Simulated assay, not measured.
Amino acid sequence: MTPTVPPPRTPLPARRGSRAGGEPRGGCARWYEQELGWATAGVAPVRLLTGLRFDALVVPAAAGHAALRRVGRAGPVALTGERMSLLVAAGSADELPGLLDWLEWGGVALALTVLGTGGRITAPPPPGRPGPPGAAVWLRPPWPLHEQKGEPVLPALSGFGSRGGDTPDLVRLVDAVATECHRARLMRARPWPASDESAAQPLAFS
């Protein structure tokens, strides 16, 4: 029996200027709240709350780069050290286990996690603003509300089977990310042959 892909969940509405816990807002938090309508927490570093306006697929950076080269279009992408966060439609965290099963990745150990309701990611400095060394950065920045026509376009299940349109396909993105995570795992487990020098044995002279 073919598993059924669950329908996408409607993102929860968020008030512009909202924040978690009443923490003081700095310039970075204010930009996210006022320009994007995203809820934030903390001040150093500012955190972006997942599960409200977006969820986040978190993968090794190398696998993420390879997956993005395959799928092309995607939503905002942030890089924090060796981990990459790909923003996807809210509700994707709930849909991911069933989607991985449908794509026949269920039960395969993958360095892939997803953050939904109750999660948070480190907020990179807003585009064009420098950050401290080692800070998170936007590889593909989000779009301010005044530059949008409606809501931000994030990878969602509504793109599955569509012919074009503005919605990136969550199915293609998850499949590409899972493939690259699995490929990296196989490469790490691959026994590398010894070099000619290390394999050479000393000659014995009588």
Results as ranks from 00 to 15, higher is better:
Arg9Phe: 08
Pro11Thr: 07
Leu12Gly: 13
Arg15Leu: 15
Gly21Thr: 12
Gly21Glu: 08
Glu23Val: 14
Arg25Glu: 14
Arg25Pro: 08
Gly26Thr: 13
Cys28His: 09
Trp31Asp: 05
Glu33Asp: 09
Glu33Cys: 11
Glu33Ile: 06
Glu35Trp: 03
Trp38Asn: 00
Ala39Glu: 15
Ala41Thr: 03
Gly42Val: 02
Ala44Gly: 09
Pro45Phe: 09
Phe54Trp: 04
Asp55Ile: 00
Asp55Leu: 00
Ala56Arg: 05
Val59Ile: 06
Pro60Ser: 09
Ala63Lys: 04
Ala63Asp: 05
Ala63Pro: 00
His65Asp: 13
Leu68Asp: 03
Leu68Ser: 06
Arg69Tyr: 04
Val71Cys: 11
Ala74Glu: 00
Glu82Asn: 11
Met84Ser: 07
Met84Gln: 10
Asp94His: 14
Leu100Glu: 02
Asp101Cys: 13
Trp102Asn: 08
Gly106Arg: 12
Gly107Val: 12
Gly107Glu: 13
Ala109Ser: 15
Ala109Arg: 15
Leu112Ala: 06
Thr113Arg: 10
Val114Pro: 03
Arg120Met: 06
Ile121His: 04
Ile121Gln: 01
Pro125Gly: 03
Arg129Pro: 04
Pro132Asn: 04
Gly134Gln: 03
Gly134Cys: 01
Leu139Val: 13
Pro141Lys: 01
Pro141Ala: 03
Pro142Gly: 03
Pro142Cys: 03
Trp143Ser: 14
Pro144Ser: 07
Leu145Asn: 05
His146Ile: 08
Gln148Val: 05
Lys149Asn: 14
Val153Arg: 15
Val153Cys: 12
Val153Ile: 13
Pro155Ala: 15
Ser158Val: 14
Gly159Pro: 13
Gly164Phe: 11
Asp169Ser: 11
Asp169Val: 02
Val171Arg: 11
Arg172Ile: 03
Leu173Gln: 05
Val174Pro: 04
Val174Glu: 06
Ala178Asp: 07
Thr179Asn: 12
Glu180Asn: 04
Glu180Arg: 03
His182Ala: 15
Leu186Phe: 02
Ala189Pro: 10
Pro191Val: 06
Trp192Ser: 14
Trp192Val: 12
Trp192Gly: 13
Asp196Met: 09
Asp196Thr: 13
Ser198Ala: 14
Ala200Pro: 06
Phe205Leu: 15
Ser206Val: 13
